[in-house]
Design a protein around this nucleic acid. Structure first.
Length: 517
RNA sequence: GGCGCCGUCGCCAAGAGGCUAAGGCAGCGGAUUGCAAAUCCGCCAUCGUGAGUUCGACUCUCACCGGCGCCUCCA
């Protein structure tokens, strides 16, 4: 089995072979930190977090870089509007972004370079491009000379001649409308850095070329980002980096699909429409998600849904597909997820040990096991193998998740058939159950799932849980005594009232369990 | 106008030139249960439309219809 990856550059799936055997350098375009993150900002990090986990699991040593773009026209505009410095705004929003990543359990990122902390590298990079004749200074600005790059357009399959380019007030300083800014001269009052061309700031794309080069070198393995970045951002990055170094910037370009508002056009957090006919402009806008509504802060979303649910939601479809965002969908996915949690509890009831105390297998080879003539384990092995095949095929997380469900079903059936909850399980039965659970933990781990118990985001949780435990213990005791006297009217009355309070009772061989919905 | 993506069960969503077209949610029937809940078993699609290529297509080609993205610093 070999890992295959879809490469936007070649538009095909290719066998994955890193530049340096065994080592992988991976760069993901991070956010421009001018507003709080919304769900769309988490798509890439969650996906590439899973990609890294799977690569590590497959035996690679991975360096994962996510940049922070903390200097940009949008930052200037927003900080001016909020009457604060650009640096303070960037600091605030970077904090928000990183808190969200942390909440989502994304702890695989090794470097978070910030554009403002790499100014020397950026300026040096631009100088190199000028020296090599690929860029020119013009009235304090510096532009990339697109005409000099014969390969320009290869990623997005574009023809330079037909390019419209940026218009606006920079037009007359450029040789060609398709040229893009590497350095922008500062207007009075704007934040700026010194450079050979005067005070100014970097253009949009150069920081990624400079920072990826600084940390990962001239040619690294995976460059990721949202599909919307293919043009112009990644096209321009390729132009800058490859003209500067004379070699490929990245071997594989991976692009994830964008989050879209369900039922509506437009994507979360995106700008509104391009110009359309005046006539249907109205209609179009009406169908679009209100920017504010759909793109609500991610931190708010976290108050309604567990991070693992959001992760599962994002990974339950193939990464290159667009995802329709809707909270109803997230809820639906959560219903499916709960099947796993119920199994974890069941596992604990039977073995007396937490599912989460099982060893977390982090290498593929270590997860292999001999099923012998055990039919349940044979099933487990089969699903494990199928899961890995799915993941090997361009990280098909959507297809892989199906095997996770199959795994749970297999183990539930085993527990049912062998009546593990009613009788004392034998050592052999326990071993089988553990192997199944271990495999589930192993495979889920490659997606960053099932790593630790979920904490429910419910508003009323936490606080008086000790009191609740004691009260429920008493109630369940009273109901049990009623049941033992065949007083089902009382027993059912208790359960009905609890149900109306969103508390579910489950009578099991070992006693009654309660859960809050 | 240019470049590209998508249209699979009620909803979401894998997939693939011939093998039973995964899985989740919802629904129906059954086992289990004092009754439930949970779990298990079973049922539930011929793949937007039309034409072509082929021994054979849902999977390839073309056209059409429908939805979407980028071409203006949005992950």
């Amino acid at each position: 089995m070999t890992l295959r990856v879809y490469n936007t550059l070649t538009k095909t799936k290719e066998p994955f072979e890193p530049v340096t055997p065994g080592q992988v350098g991976m760069y993901l375009c991070g956010p421009t930190v001018y507003k709080p993150s919304h769900i769309g900002h988490m798509v890439g990090p969650v996906i590439f977090d899973a990609v890294k986990r799977y690569l590590v699991y497959s035996g690679f040593k991975v360096t994962f870089v996510v940049n922070i773009t903390d200097v940009d026209d949008k930052l200037i505009k927003e900080s001016t509007a909020r009457k604060m410095t650009m640096a303070a705004l960037a600091e605030e929003m970077t904090g928000d972004y990183q808190r969200n990543l942390e909440a989502m359990g994304i702890d695989t990122i090794d470097h978070f370079p910030r554009a403002t902390q790499c100014m020397g590298d950026i300026v040096g990079f631009i100088e190199l491009l000028i020296t090599k004749g690929f860029a020119y200074a013009s009235e304090g600005d510096v532009y990339f000379d697109v005409a000099r790059d014969r390969e320009y357009g290869k990623l997005s399959n574009r023809d330079v001649a037909s390019m419209q380019g940026e218009g606006g007030d920079m037009a007359e300083r450029k040789r060609s409308p398709a040229d893009f800014a590497l350095w922008k001269s500062a207007k009075p009052g704007e934040p700026s850095w010194d450079s050979p061309w005067g005070k100014g700031r970097p253009g949009w794309h150069i920081e990624c070329s400079a920072m990826s080069h600084k940390i990962l070198g001239e040619t690294f393995d995976i460059h990721g980002g949202g599909l919307d970045l293919v043009f112009p951002h990644h096209e321009n990055e390729i132009a800058q980096s490859e003209c500067a170094h004379g070699k490929p910037q990245a071997k594989y370009w991976m692009h994830n699909g964008l989050m879209q508002a369900s039922n509506e056009v437009g994507k979360v957090g995106g700008r509104n429409t391009r110009e359309t006919e005046a006539g249907d402009q109205q209609a179009q806008e009406a169908g679009k998600m209100g920017k504010s509504k759909g793109a609500s802060a991610f931190s708010e979303l976290l108050q309604r849904h567990a991070p693992e649910t959001i992760r599962f939601f994002l990974l339950s479809t193939h990464y290159r597909r667009p995802i329709d965002f809707s909270e109803a969908r997230i809820e639906e996915v959560n219903t499916g997820l709960e099947q796993f949690y119920r199994f974890f509890k069941r596992y604990e009831r039977i073995t007396g040990e937490s599912f989460y105390s099982l060893p977390q297998i982090s290498k593929r080879a270590e997860g292999e096991f001999d099923a012998g003539s055990n039919p349940t384990l044979a099933q487990v092995a089969l699903h494990r193998q199928h899961y890995l095949e799915q993941m090997d095929d361009d990280f098909n997380t959507g297809g892989a998740v199906a095997d996770l469900f199959e795994l749970v079903r297999t183990m539930n059936k085993f527990a049912d058939d062998e009546k593990l909850e009613a009788n004392k399980p034998s050592a052999e039965q326990l071993a089988t159950l553990k192997q199944g659970a271990k495999t589930l933990r192993e495979l889920g781990g490659t997606l960053g799932l099932f790593r630790k118990p979920v904490e429910k985001p419910s508003a009323d949780g936490g606080g008086n849980s000790e009191l609740a435990d004691k009260l429920m213990g008493l109630i369940i005791e009273l109901r049990a005594s009623a049941r033992s006297k065949k007083d089902f009217a009382t027993a059912d009355r208790i359960r009905e009232v609890l149900t109306s309070l969103n508390i579910t009772l489950e009578d099991r061989p070992g006693g009654t369990e309660w859960t809050v919905k």
